[in-house]
Design a protein around this nucleic acid. Sequence first.
RNA 1: GCGGGAGUGGCGGAAUGGCAGACGCAGCAGACUUAGGAUCUGCCGCCUUCGGGCGUGGGGGUUCAAGUCCCCCCUCCCGCACCA
Length: 1013
Amino acid sequence: MTSSSEHTGNASTAAGTHGTTPAKIPPLVSDLPFRYGAHLAGDIERRWQQTWSERGTFNAPNPHGPLSDGFDQVAGRPVFFVMDMFPYPSGSGLHVGHPLGYIGTDVFARYLRMTGYHVLHPFGYDAFGLPAEQYAINTGQHPRVTTEANIDNMRRQLGRLGLGHDTRREVATTDVEYYRWTQWIFLKIFNSWYDDEAGRARPISELIADFEAGTRAPRGDANPHNRPWSALRTTERRQIVAGYRLAFISEQLVNWCPGLGTVLANEEVTAEGRSDVGNYPVFRRPLRQWMMRITSYADRLIADLDLVDWPDSIKQMQRNWIGPSDGATVEFTAVGSDIRIEVFTTRPDTLAGATFMVLAPEHPLVDTLTAQAWPQGTPIAWTFADGIDREAGPGTGASGNRPAPEWTPRAAVNAYREYAAHLGDRQRGTDEIPRTGVFTGSYVTNPVTGDPIAVFLADYVLMGYGTGAIMAVPAHDQRDFSFARTLGLPIPAVLAPDEDWRAEHNVPAGAEPNTWPVAFAGDGEYLPATGVGPPLVGLSKPDAIKSTIRWLEDVGAGRAARSYRLRDWLFSRQRYWGEPFPIVFDDDGLPIALSEDLLPVTLPEMTDFRPSAMADDDVNDPVPPLARVADWATVTLDLGEGPKTYRRETNTMPQWAGSCWYYLRYLDPTNSERFVDPEVERYWMHTPDGPPGDGGVGLYVGGVEHAVLHLLYARFWHKVLYDLGLVSTREPFKKLFNQGYIQADAFTDGRGMYVPAAEVVRTAEGTLRHNGEPVNRRSGKMGKSLKNSVSPDEIYDSFGADTLRVYEMAMGPLDADRPWHTDDIVGSHRFLQRLWRNIIDEATGGAVVSDVTPDAEATRMLHRTILAVRADYTDLRFNTAVARLIELTNFVSKRYGASGGLPRELAEALVLMVAPLAPHIAEELWARLGHDGSLAMHPFPEADDSLAVDPTVTLPVQVNGKVRFTVDVPVDADEQAVRDLVAGHDEYARHTADRTVKRMIVIPGRIVNIALN
RNA sequence: GCGGGAGUGGCGGAAUGGCAGACGCAGCAGACUUAGGAUCUGCCGCCUUCGGGCGUGGGGGUUCAAGUCCCCCCUCCCGCACCA
């Protein structure tokens, strides 16, 4: 799961005295052998990491099966599954921004263990896909080699952070034993169909059984043969069934990226029409590709967002991405033939104003509809709308504005389709986009008015949305309006604009719509209409829509419909480094699923695995690298009909496939019989008290960049698995949390190129320079492209991993972006140093604690801190937890620093509370305080509410809302006692002299406010 | 344009409607020091005639009391964007 979106900008965030990246900070040295510094921290951290590893401290036993050793000791505990979005093993290693979320989940998981939970916290690597393959190509190595090396490096860097993962469960999506199950799940999806009536996926065998039994007939659009099932040939039947599968091959207009040599999903293409990976141009072209029918789940993907505890912003992004809109389909019949064209509209109420129709250039009926000759009186403008190259096209004619005789509708349509296919970048713009299009020479009949209306092709109608055709109502839709203006089409009004709109656009009442500056898209009064449509005058918009839909259904010209922005998921890639499909083809070209016992289909070794280079305008079908492995691409198998030669599918699965289900494999990573044991799955994924089907990963932390990619795909797969009874919860991730990004100053030179931030120096005059040249500072997400990365290794060496952990948690709320300042880390280091010095004699290394009972104030401080820190950890507010712990540490060092050491009770509570944040130093202190073993499972300190309260409280006294003085009152003083005390105070007399006291408000334990006139 | 989020000291950030600025960095003063980028102590929003006044993007409002709730506006960030 790779992020490639860098967000830069906001140069002002880093203004001020901070910001320059300092030279490397040498480790702090000291004569005292047991002073807590980088050296000692490194020593402590190495030892404890080794101890945890040897003892398997963070191994979480399963209820049964191979990983169940030690389950008896945790049986009966509440269960919690904490998970990070696994990384793609980048070649450039980690920077300090990467582990932010990993530290967060580790702190949380460690806290949960100390509060009695049985915690599963695994980790893994998302190692297939474009970024890994591009890296391998760039370095001239095999992706398996680079991937393994990168994983090793990341494991080492993360290992030094002391993350408490159950390392036995580590998975990489590229492991054969992992991707065999990815292929297995693909087969489950391939062998399923969506039963709209049941509202769920079902095995394809049940559909076939229905067809066989005659209890269900194939849908009309799935059965072009128009014969009953019993009369169909085997190939025809297979074709029909293929049209139902959730994974299917389809010729679609896809995003073709010659630069990467592969097609891409919509989600992988930027708004600028370029690839998310590599920023290459992307073109639309029709290709036969694997698709996944995610659109069948559109409603459930929206509805079930109500089941999960996710940030509202992410839920909203998913809703927007799925983008449901309600309306109707309306059928128009062609004039002079019985061809029927279906359009989708959200405004059936404006049907009477539809004066033309527009098809997407790729619409399948275009050829059929294109006329032989231009109808009499066709305006010249309709025959070559802007966009067709007049210089090159045959339509220019000698005079330059009159079509030549050979400029037929066919020629115009073909020229326009050619033009539309080569539109690269999506044009942006907020206002007017130049409208282009061409007349097909055909007319259809408006079912309400009975008028013939012209059918155009225009690129503003998209094949992928609705039906790929629209009825154009220029008076009430801005796009149709500007198209009508360009081509001189009529613009009759269905609704009268309201006064506000007329005033805003300076339109007099009753003005002709073709004098309006823009279309009126708002709500207004319906005008009396001619024709046979339903009466709408006086109705509200929703009622008019309902009324029209009822009318359409009555006359058989349409029905209510819902359309989605979401497209089906383009699931194949013409690349090497991905999961091979468990699919072969026979002579009739229909896909055949391999049986489960033929899994895994392993990726063949290739020395030249690069995608076939293709020019931007090459219209040949791309040849995937696997197609070049001849002895792999064809295979002889016995699939029940005796040994036959088959052609393998040579595309590979997209990067997202492996990440769609890895959370399930963590649960049972060594299972060779199943993708996950059902009992183990229920144990970890189930929410004990929730409704049936409720549950999911207890906490899932990752970046916001996956809001509509991974998180949508994974939910889709999970729902298919749920429908098939293979998992027990409706949603995969119960709670989602998005950690922020670490920002860092970046610097550009005079040419606007980034220069390495580490080499920028601040001169004596305060200007920033690189190699003597002045540079500009801006801020952006830390990363290679901005040349502002800081490696965690540098920080480990200068301060230790515990300091880095505390710093990253203290910087701010976990979900907020925050700027990295190496200068600030020293504060976190000082905190740990002070904690250490409070307990350890820096000369001898021995613990110095006393057996005295903490005094009342210290006890109060301790119990208040326990209360606050527990709440902070529970709610992932680690920044305020750190602040509380620093406060307590500072307090006890002042109170007990000069005496014979901290009271043991205080020291131990402090160590235990710090442990989730800074586990190595905490373990070391715990050991030096005389304890055997790890504190990882030691109960977290409990607060006693009664000890946390102060017997007297200082109440602020406000006069007219401003604090003027304070009074000390017993904590249990009643309101009257407080009143008397305040009224008798000297300051009271001073502030109320010459004034009338209107009221005195006493909020016991909180505040007093005196309201004067 | 549509949808979402955020504006608090020099900086990062705290504040169930109840003392705005916890905690950290930076800064200032002092102690200990050959030394300090170590440690310790204190100060640290702005203005001030030292009474106090002003302060959470701007303007209104509700309230005894508003960073917090309501209305209007401004700026910035993120997502989507010809989706009929």
